[in-house]
Amino acid sequence: MKAGVIVFPGSNCDRDLAVAFERVSGRKTDMIWHKDSTLPTGLDIVAVPGGFSFGDYLRCGAIAARSPIMRSVVEFANNGGHVLGICNGFQVLIESGLLPGALMRNAGLKFVCKDVELKVATSRTAFTSNYRKGEEITIPVAHHDGNYVADPDLVKRLKDEDRITFTYADNPNGSTADIAGIVSENRRVMGMMPHPERLNDRHLGGTDGTRLFESLGEALVGA
């Protein structure tokens, strides 16, 4: 699996994400600057990291979503490529139109930074195949705008199509239907607010996040 991580001004989880991919694949992660207009060739997955791209100006992820590299990321996704967006990366993918819905200010108006319990809502994606459906895992969240908003039609569609990947056991931000992560219609683009790359080493508190990267490593081996 060859991974590429997009770097915006204000990204701050890009290196953790790169390490998470490298540990699984043994291959160096390509770091891709937002002003580049093309992706390196041979990537199996593109990841959009957490952070505060462009200072969260206008709306979280709005400016980053219009940067030159994102056109190539959208094209990569439209051609069937795998794309992962975490936290600010999820916001960027929504603003890019790759995932439906919106992410709004947390209902409690506070920045929430803590470990939360997540329920694995489906293992039927390349991102979650190493988890069991219904399993509870611990993954940290750190966000101010993680309140996923979807109208009833969209929620129904996400549920019917088994596209909700993670839900919160104890909702920290007011998100609709406790949604913490979703996949696209072709199941190859996933966005999630919690940070699996931050629980990827037992010396740092746990490895519940590791299996997400292992799932990808297995799905995309030699892809």
Binding site: L58, R59, A62, P100, G101, A102, M104, V149
Partner: peptide
């Protein structure tokens, strides 16, 4: 339409 508003919300 393209940037200033998120027409979803």
């Amino acid at each position: 339409e393209k940037l200033l508003a998120n027409t979803v919300i």
